[in-house]
Amino acid sequence: MRAVAAFTLKEALRRRLVAVVVAVTGLFLVLLSLGVQAEARLGGPAVALLGGVTVVLVGIYLASPLPALLAVLSSAGAISAEIESGAMQAVLARPIGRAQIVLGKLLGLGALLAAYTLVLYGAVLLIAWAAARATLPDAPAVLGLLVLQPLIIVAATVLGSTFLPTLANGAAAILLYGVAAFGGALEQITAFADVHALSDIGIITSLMLPADAMYRRAAALAAQGQAGGLIWRLAGPASGAATPSPAMVWYALVYVAAAVGGAVWIFTRRDV
């Protein structure tokens, strides 16, 4: 399993995809830094009125699609691409169980995404601190939820790659992420208006893919008890105003376990 994980990690790092994501991330961080510093220098409303935490929340909000995108793009062909190329045939003829292959892939991709997410949000926090001396309250819990977000997507996408062609799986994963994010944004409206239908949509999409719910809970935790946090709740679809419950975090963990179990179950039974 370790060999598969190491090879998967090496593949992810060698492919142009990661280079592109790193370049985009660098550009994003530069722009975020310039924007935040300019705001702080001018004593602008975001810093002066809303407090430093808003800078952190804006950074997290803007950065959150990046790990999700990397998760989808790196995992879409985790199993299927090797089946399509025929390379999997030679691997499966080796004395290694199919479950070990799936778990090794997940381990490699999970390590990559966890490291990338921590570096990304670490950089965001550094920028916020440098510009406005802003810090992240309850950092371990918030960062834990933010790391869980791409891991959920990786688990779901690897599950898809055990039975879908790579292209279809990538499209399905992006669609699912989009639907979950849209559902989560709609749900925020219920913090201000009691619209059950929107709340139901948010819950259903969160159950389909609880990744966006983890971002919402992380944002809510970060904003809790902060001066700017109250204002942040008014940020509408971007906010964590309608906060997912702790049960949703447990659901997300069960979701990941079920997706991993499903991927192993399907792959050990499919013909190659």
Binding site: R14, A87, A93
Partner: peptide, 29 residues
């Protein structure tokens, strides 16, 4: 499977790796 070698009919090994890395990976497996 511990005692067999297998060459599939249609295959394309990972193009991002070197030949030695591919064989090294299989040696580990």
């Amino acid at each position: 499977r511990r005692q067999i070698g297998y060459l599939p009919e249609n295959f394309r090994y990972p193009d991002w790796a070197t030949g030695a890395e591919v064989i090294g990976f299989h040696a580990t497996l």
